[in-house]
Deep mutational scan, measured.
Amino acid sequence: KNAAQIVDEALNQGITLFVADNRLQYETSRDNIPEELLNEWKYYRQDLIDFLQQLD
């Protein structure tokens, strides 16, 4: 998997990933985040941060 796929997957589930103060953050109206997504975000944290910062 790559960062773009993970960001896309999150968006499809109503979750927006973004970077604030060099930390990976998310916004969602969901009550909870599936644990497998959280684990994936932790595992790919630096890739996601790098990818999202390139988009800014």
Rank of each mutant, 00 (worst) to 15 (best):
D47A: 15
V19L: 10
E9R: 08
N12A: 15
R45Y: 15
I33D: 01
A4S: 10
D31F: 07
I6T: 01
E40I: 08
L52N: 00
A3N: 02
N32I: 13
Q53S: 14
A3T: 04
L48K: 00
S29F: 10
T28Y: 05
Q46R: 08
N12R: 15
N22C: 14
S29Q: 12
P34S: 09
A3R: 02
Q13M: 15
E35I: 11
E27M: 13
Y26D: 00
E9M: 06
E35G: 07
E40H: 04
A4K: 14
D50H: 09
R45V: 14
E27I: 15
Q25T: 06
A20Y: 10
L24P: 02
K1E: 02
L52P: 00
T28D: 02
Y43T: 12
L11E: 07
R30T: 07
E27R: 15
E27T: 14
I49S: 02
N22P: 01
Q53I: 13
R45L: 15
Q25G: 09
Q53K: 13
Y44M: 06
P34L: 04
L52T: 00
R23A: 13
E40W: 04
P34G: 05
K1A: 04
L17Q: 01
W41M: 07
V19I: 08
L37C: 03
Q54P: 09
W41R: 00
Y26M: 05
K42R: 13
S29P: 07
P34M: 03
F51L: 05
Y44D: 02
V7Y: 14
A4C: 11
L48F: 01
D21S: 05
Q13G: 06
S29T: 13
L52H: 00
A20V: 15
A4W: 09
D56T: 12
D21M: 06
E35W: 08
D50R: 13
L48T: 00
A20W: 12
E9A: 06
A20S: 12
F18M: 06
L11K: 14
L17A: 01
P34V: 04
K1V: 04
K1T: 04
I6V: 07
I6Q: 01
G14Y: 04
T16D: 05
Q53G: 10
A4V: 05
D31L: 10
A4F: 06
N2V: 08
D47R: 08
Q5F: 05
L24R: 00
I6N: 01
N32G: 08
K1W: 04
Y26W: 15
A20F: 12
R23S: 13
G14D: 05
K42V: 12
Y44R: 06
N2M: 11
N39G: 07
D21T: 03
R30A: 09
L52F: 10
A10Y: 03
I33K: 01
I6H: 01
N22M: 08
T16E: 08
V19Q: 03
E9F: 07
Y26L: 03
Y26I: 06
L48Q: 00
A20K: 15
F18H: 06
